[in-house]
């Protein structure tokens, strides 16, 4: 599909137009806080693309942290109205890939989750390639790229005051059809490659998976989680984590059945009604999370559920670094299966 160049003014006009037709979400500086987050905008002026990534990923725009499944009043219940059309502008390739993973999970694997699908069908993804990685970025190590297009309709690369626009889907191509043709120089093409060069080398995730396949009982798990306080921040910030709880909120006959993000790091997450808990220990819960990222989802949907965004590293109050965990597991787990 034809690439175009969009000037900053051109992008500003597009954002204003899109905002008239539906919601536009983009990274915005969070008040006096030193970070950006996805907020609804009506003009490009409100946005701030200066950070590599937003504090939280964009996953909440498709899988809200709190979502109404049913509303009820006096014993009668009804489904919520269909979500509105939305454009997510400035999503990084890692986060877009994470939503593509979630889409595979929520819309495949048997039953389709209609809430996620309704939002997905009404969302346009406009990504921003990364020109400079953050210290905690490792998308290249887990199969991603700072200019990856997975999950996107259109990828923008900042080429100094203007944007190289690369359509990924027909939907993306239509967005920029009226823009002038580009004169793409080699210099511009190389921006993304330069970024990738600064990033970590790929890890052999297939070998790690083989080690994890037979490593469930290995003593390496006895020490990996010692610093973990089971706060669950890693799971809430993780753009691929999809677990939720369902609960009813009711007052005077009115209320809603809602779902809220949940975390496998919480003790009660797996606790049976009888009180029995298959993952009673913090060790078993930490192991479940790591196994899920690098083994279980590979078995389930054929891919890792880590996109290398680095948020769990930045925000872990105990300083746990998933890159170190992977390194320790790769070093200590034997590759050959230990048969019982």
């Amino acid at each position: 599909m034809t690439q175009r160049v969009i000037t900053a003014d051109g992008l500003a006009k597009l954002v204003t137009e899109w905002a008239k037709k539906g919601a536009v979400y983009a990274p915005v500086k969070a008040g006096s806080k030193d970070w950006t987050e996805f907020r609804r905008v009506t003009s490009l002026k409100e946005t701030d693309f200066s950070r590599v990534n937003t504090k939280q990923s964009a996953k909440g725009l498709l899988f809200p942290q709190r979502e109404v499944m049913l509303r009820f009043k006096d014993g009668k219940s009804e489904e919520p109205a269909a979500p509105e059309e939305q454009v997510i502008l400035g999503i990084r390739p890692c986060d877009a890939a994470a939503i593509a993973f979630q889409a595979k999970f929520f819309t495949g694997q048997g039953q389709t989750d209609p809430y996620f699908k309704a939002r997905l069908d009404r969302t346009t993804f406009i990504g921003f390639a990364c020109n400079t990685p953050a210290e905690t970025c490792f998308c290249t190590a887990v199969g991603g790229s700072p200019s990856g297009t997975r999950g996107l309709d259109l990828l923008l690369t900042d080429i100094g005051g203007k944007y190289l626009a690369e359509p990924v889907t027909d939907k993306g191509a239509a967005l920029i059809a009226d823009m002038p043709d580009p004169a793409i120089g080699d210099l511009e093409r190389k921006l993304a490659e330069k970024c990738a060069e600064q990033m970590p080398q790929a890890i052999d995730t297939a070998a790690l998976k083989r080690r994890l396949d037979s490593g469930f009982e290995h003593p390496v798990w006895d020490e990996l989680n010692l610093a973990c306080v089971n706060c669950g921040a890693c799971t809430f910030l993780c753009p691929t984590c999809h677990c939720f709880d369902v609960t009813d909120e009711e007052r005077k006959g009115r209320g809603a059945r809602i779902r809220v993000w949940d975390s496998c790091q919480f003790c009660i997450y797996s606790q049976h009604a009888s009180g029995h808990n298959p993952r009673q220990t913090a060790r078993s819960r930490y192991r479940n999370r790591v196994m899920d990222k690098f083994k279980y989802t590979v078995d389930m949907v054929g891919e890792l559920s880590c996109v290398g965004c680095g948020r769990c590293i930045i925000e872990c109050p105990a300083g746990i670094d998933v890159r170190e965990t992977v390194e320790v597991l790769t070093r200590q787990l034997p590759e050959a299966a230990e048969k019982k």
Binding site: R259, Y269, H272, M291, T297, D299
Partner: peptide, 19 residues
Amino acid sequence: LENRMKCGIGKCGHCNLGS
């Protein structure tokens, strides 16, 4: 088996036994 579960259709994550 009877593990804790919230959705019944393999989305909420709760009842996993490995993969």
